[in-house]
Write a protein that binds this DNA or RNA. Structure first.
Length: 573
RNA sequence: CGGGGCGUAGCGCAGCCCGGUAGCGCACCUGCCUUGGGCGCAGGGGGUCGCAGGUUCGAAUCCUGUCGCCCCGACCA
């Protein structure tokens, strides 16, 4: 590509509305422009990179035996009603209505569509397994889109869905996909970790997230030396039960205007872990009382999973008053037996005395004991791990870090096939439900993550396999005939060798060209100038290391080709 | 949804408090000049100041509403 003809609007200054380095650089490097919050156009350079990432994904998917399809962006609401997600997916689901007032969904993911497709064609165990994928646009009405491509409302995703006769067969594919994901992210030049994760609105049981490590990441990761790694939504932690205490009679304590854990703990002079934090939720129409220790945070994802994935919302103050008889801030589990489903966190012990709200203004109760005073509906792990917590496997203190989620693989089981009646006949002639897996990769998010992980004060530093071009040829003064001829010759030679070349044939000052070259971040730069030509050489500069090699003009093409091929194969292996 | 900030030329911003002919830098166009890290000089084009009402002789500026964008938070009692 000749820069003089390229649609490549680079910017000297950071855009005012960008926060993350990757977002700023993508806009400055002429890759990305915004139309509305979370809605972007990819410009030629940005799309080239995206296509390269998509191509790597495609190659590795094909290698697993998965087959590419294209599913509709817009789907009839009926499919989503079948699985219940029309109601359960919540506000993130973009909905559309046509002229006949029929409801549609702009797909945030495609379990429904693919299951509909497969159930109509798979009859026998002989038709299984199947593994289908697509690379397509997804829509999510994010609560707060931000960080450019990192959390957009419309984005490019690879989603794959596999169909099996049983768990063992699913496991085989799951492992293969897991391995393929590792290869994909490695080929994209990313540093990443694999963590155990929460399945959120997708559902299912076993699942892993692939996280690109970055301080700017939105996701928190807990990990320990033994290999345990988990996202904040799902991380477990070890805890040591404390000694039982003799039962003491429950006592009322006036706690005027003491609502928060801190206020109550200080007022009654007890530690925060003595307090039973009582939170009222609604899971659809059912009220839920969740009890966690005062020194820990309730983990909504864990609670939602315990409840089967229904969307949760916290009860409002009037609702709390109606349900418990007391105002917000003084809620507790005592005396609510039979009135509200009460789920108690696993770390709260029987045989110890706790403090809880009294369901009356300015009242707390002391020496509250599970079983005796509190009717427990269920026990569950309800809290989020925090810094200093110990690994559930090895007991070591876990390290907390941040990451960008770029991939997620799930064993779905029969969550969708059951509700959508996707069945097959086994060898015995018995009808059985198909077992599913699903596997996602945020293609556009990888682009952002790659930049987030590889840049310097001058711009982007692309890994060769996803760089928009392999080589950037910069003639210092394109008007000077020897420089121009050398550049043109090299340009043609490289192109005919299949190398992707960007030629800066603009009549710009060298400084401007170098700045743009650094900003664009193409891994190799060839500088051609009168000074070098006087010695019969051109300069080969490495964007990442800034190392410069002086290469005889006649060897330039060969040297570049060798370097590009080497960088491409190293990344692949 | 709550709190905060911002909407003035393609981009980055000043002007607004204190109403009176809309500015700066970059980018862009023309000419000259220059060519190894965002050259220089001269000339030039481009904005109904987000939108709608209101106050006023007069509104970018004051008031009301509305839309959009960004940041923080999103209920942990």
């Amino acid at each position: 590509m000749r820069l003089s003809q390229a649609f490549l609007p680079t910017l000297k200054e950071d855009p005012a509305d960008a926060e993350l380095v990757s977002h700023k650089l993508m806009v400055r490097a002429g890759m990305l422009r915004k139309h509305a919050a979370g809605i972007y156009s990819l410009l030629p350079i940005g799309w080239r990179v995206t296509r390269k990432v998509a191509q790597i994904v495609r190659e590795e998917m094909d290698r697993t035996g998965a087959q590419e399809v294209l599913l509709p962006i817009m789907m009839p609401s009926e499919l989503w009603k079948e699985t219940g997600r029309w109601e359960k997916y919540g506000k993130e689901l973009f909905r559309q209505r046509d002229r006949h007032d029929r409801d549609y969904v702009l797909g945030p993911t495609h379990e429904e569509a693919i299951t509909d497709l497969v159930r109509n064609h798979v009859r026998s165990y002989r038709d299984l397994p199947q593994n289908l994928y697509q690379i397509g646009v997804k829509f999510r009405d994010e609560i707060r889109p931000r960080f450019g491509l990192m959390r957009a409302r419309e984005f490019l995703m690879k989603d794959a869905y596999s169909f099996h006769v049983d768990d063992a067969q699913l496991h085989e594919t799951y492992e293969r996909m897991h391995a393929a994901y590792t290869t994909i992210f490695r080929r994209c030049g990313l540093t990443f970790v694999v963590v155990e994760a929460d399945s959120g609105a997708i559902g299912g049981d076993v699942n892993h997230e692939f996280m690109v490590t970055a301080d700017s990441g939105e996701a928190e990761i807990f990990a320990s030396g033994c290999g345990y790694a988990a996202s904040a939504e799902s991380a477990k932690f070890a805890w040591t039960p404390q000694a039982e205490e003799p039962a003491a009679p429950m006592a009322e304590r006036e706690t005027p205007e003491k609502r928060t854990v801190e206020e109550v703990a200080a007022f009654l002079d007890v530690s925060a872990d003595r307090l039973l934090k009582s939170l009222v939720f609604y899971a659809e129409e059912e009220p839920i009382l969740a009890i966690v220790p005062g020194n820990r945070e309730l983990n909504e994802a864990k609670l939602a999973r315990h409840l089967g994935g229904a969307p949760l919302r916290l009860a409002t103050a009037p609702e709390i008053e109606r349900l418990t008889g007391g105002p917000l801030g003084f809620t507790g589990p005592v005396g609510l037996a039979g009135k509200i489903r009460t789920i108690v966190d696993a770390t709260i012990q029987e045989g110890r005395n706790y403090v809880a709200g009294g369901n009356r203004k300015d009242l707390h109760l002391q020496n509250v004991r599970l079983g005796r005073d509190v009717v427990v509906s269920e026990r569950a792990d309800l809290t989020t791990a925090k810094a200093g917590d110990r690994c559930p496997r090895c007991g070591e203190v876990m390290v907390v870090s941040r990451g960008i989620e770029v991939g997620h693989v799930f064993k779905l089981g029969t969550k969708y096939s059951e509700s959508m009646a996707a069945r097959f006949l086994d060898a015995e002639g018995t009808e059985r439900t198909i077992v599913m897996g699903c596997y996602g990769i945020g293609v556009t998010r990888i682009v952002a993550a790659a930049i987030e992980q590889s840049n310097d004060e001058n711009g982007i530093i692309w890994p060769m396999p996803i760089a928009p071009y392999h080589v950037h040829v910069v003639p210092v003064n394109f008007k000077e005939s020897r420089t121009r001829d050398t550049a043109e010759d090299l340009y043609k030679a490289l192109m005919s060798a299949g190398i992707e070349v960007l030629l800066d044939d603009r009549d710009e000052r060298p400084g401007a060209k170098f700045k743009d070259a650094d900003l664009l971040g193409i891994p190799l730069r060839v500088t051609i100038g009168e000074k070098g030509l006087a010695d019969g050489i051109v300069e080969l500069r490495d964007r990442k290391t800034s190392a410069v090699a002086r290469v005889p003009v006649g060897d330039a093409a060969t040297a570049v080709i060798a370097r590009v091929r080497e960088a491409l194969t190293t990344a692949t292996s």
